[in-house]
Simulated scan of single mutants.
Amino acid sequence: MSRSSDLGPALRAERLEQGTSQLALAEIAGVGRQWLNAFEMGDKPSAPLDMVMRVADALGVSVMLNRPVRHAPGNVPEPVDLNDLLERFRQ
């Protein structure tokens, strides 16, 4: 993903694949159903990170960051584990 508004729809696709209702996910994640609906539709591009992470955690998925792709041949983006990064930040 290259835009923040893509994250909600990606998590929506995961929710649907798991067969979880929006209401059930909202309750598990501790967010409002209306907020979750807007987030899943891409209408919350500046959603608070803690809320996004609660939704991802409730779905059992993680969010990964990739370093920007450089246009050199054979250069593959190196994944960054956001959970590890946050844990190191907390220390």
Rank of each mutant, 00 (worst) to 15 (best):
G8C: 03
A58W: 01
S5T: 12
R90S: 15
G30W: 01
L23E: 02
A72S: 10
S62G: 12
M53S: 09
L16Q: 13
W35P: 00
E27N: 11
M41W: 08
E40L: 02
I28D: 03
D84T: 10
G74S: 04
E78Y: 09
T20Q: 09
A13Y: 05
P77W: 02
P79W: 07
L36G: 02
R90G: 13
V55L: 04
A13R: 13
A24C: 09
V55D: 00
F39M: 00
Q22L: 00
V31N: 00
P73R: 07
D50Q: 15
L85P: 08
M64R: 15
E14H: 09
G42Y: 01
D57G: 13
E87Q: 13
A47G: 05
N83T: 10
I28M: 05
P45M: 04
L16I: 15
N83L: 08
D81Y: 12
G19Q: 04
I28E: 02
T20R: 02
E17I: 06
V52K: 04
A10P: 00
V69S: 03
E40R: 04
D57E: 14
A29Q: 02
L7M: 03
N83E: 11
R15G: 03
L59Q: 04
R67Y: 06
N83P: 05
L59D: 03
G30P: 00
P9R: 07
R12Y: 10
P9Q: 10
A26P: 00
W35H: 02
L36W: 00
Q18W: 06
K44Q: 12
R15Q: 04
N66L: 13
A29F: 02
S62W: 05
N66S: 14
L7F: 01
D6F: 10
P79C: 10
P45D: 05
P48D: 10
D84M: 14
R12F: 09
S62Y: 08
N75E: 14
G32Q: 03
K44W: 05
R70W: 00
A47R: 03
E87K: 11
N37A: 08
E17D: 09
G8N: 03
V76T: 06
P9S: 11
E14A: 14
M41S: 12
A26G: 01
M51F: 07
S5C: 12
L59S: 05
E87A: 15
L23M: 12
M64K: 15
A58Y: 00
